[in-house]
């Protein structure tokens, strides 16, 4: 077998178009592995993406992201919506391996042909999702999925890329987040379109939800701007799921007014092109042997204090030729 499993891209795409899950799954692997083959897949897939709505689920580890994704997916399936789920777990920076465990909570979705679940390892990306998350979402979209639910790795404060990938971001917190919420004000608290206080079975949950509401209310917002609601849920007992779905839909409707969704989609695409361009430039620069040569030649001078790091950067910059 070759690197594409012996099947050439054309055959795979044809089988994908006929609706074969094996072909969709193999194409996702090609996207994950990146490079020229991934770009060829995107050439074929991207025009077929129909604009599926993308919802992000993020929050600290153990907050209940996978369980809420399960509940929301089940609710959407009862309305016969075709669902794609992308669940990201972290890659070990030491071994390069990953334990992808989000399916454990989503077992009840397995066997429903209206749902396609794919686990992705973050593979070195530090933004809370995998670098190919957008592309995998495009592929599931082109595969006929109408809603794409994307679950990030368990995040702290600064893994915020989900906001540049999805149309509605659901931030999931738990009463135990406690003082942690204070610390998160600067990052996570700014990207949520809907906030969830999960584990409503916990005695402190209502108080914790009120604290988040208060924090959100401190922010100055222009008239008519979206004010993120805080929804109490219990993924364990299945409570608050309808309310959460309603809040997501409300935000969706809000975006559809006054062309906000169109603007958001354009902004997301712009940032995608920008970051893909930066990746490519970075690779091009480091592929240039003269850049690496100067770096190893001159790093000694920096070490000895004869040259500042920034002067060396200028020297490197002069060497960069980008055609």
């Amino acid at each position: 077998m070759g690197s594409n499993g012996g099947q050439d891209l054309q055959v795979l795409i044809e089988r994908f178009e006929q609706g074969h899950a094996t072909a969709a799954a193999r194409l996702i692997t090609i996207l994950e592995n990146g490079g020229e083959p991934a770009e060829s897949v995107m050439d074929r897939i991207f025009p077929k993406a129909r604009g599926a709505y993308r919802i992000g689920f993020t929050g600290p580890p153990g907050a209940g992201k996978s369980s809420l994704v399960l509940h929301i997916s089940q609710l959407l399936r009862r309305r016969d919506v075709q669902i794609g789920v992308i669940a990201v777990d972290p890659t070990s920076p030491f071994s390069g391996g990953a334990l992808l465990g989000d399916r454990i909570r989503m077992q009840r979705l397995t066997g429903d042909p209206g749902v396609f679940v794919r686990s992705l390892a973050s593979r070195g990306s530090l933004g809370g999702i995998s670098n190919c998350t957008d592309e995998v979402a495009d592929l599931l979209d082109a595969f006929g999925k109408e809603m794409i639910l994307i679950e990030t790795v368990g995040v702290g404060q600064s893994e915020l890329e989900i906001a540049e990938t999805t149309h509605t971001v659901v931030v999931i917190l738990v009463p135990e987040s406690g003082d942690g919420i204070q610390a998160m004000k600067a990052g996570l608290m700014e990207i949520g379109d809907v906030f969830v206080m999960n584990k409503a079975d916990h005695p402190d949950s209502e108080l914790a939800a009120k604290e988040i509401e208060d924090t959100l209310r401190l922010k100055n917002v222009p008239d008519g701007a979206w004010i993120p609601p805080v929804v109490l849920t219990s993924a364990l007992e299945g409570r608050g799921i309808k309310e959460l779905a309603e809040s997501i839909e409300k935000h969706h409707r809000y975006l559809e007014e006054e062309d906000r969704l169109v603007e958001k989609r354009r902004r997301i695409l712009r940032s995608r092109v920008r970051s893909a361009f930066m990746d490519r430039m970075e690779r091009k620069i480091w592929d240039d042997p003269s850049v690496r040569e100067i770096l190893s030649e001159r790093i000694g001078d920096v070490y000895e204090g004869r040259l500042s790091p920034y002067r060396l950067v200028q020297e490197l910059e002069k060497r960069v030729k980008i055609e």
Partner: peptide
């Protein structure tokens, strides 16, 4: 765990 530590991506379904 052993497979993860060997650099593989392990989907654990429980």
């Amino acid at each position: 765990n052993a497979l993860r530590d060997a650099g593989m991506e392990v989907v654990y379904t429980g």
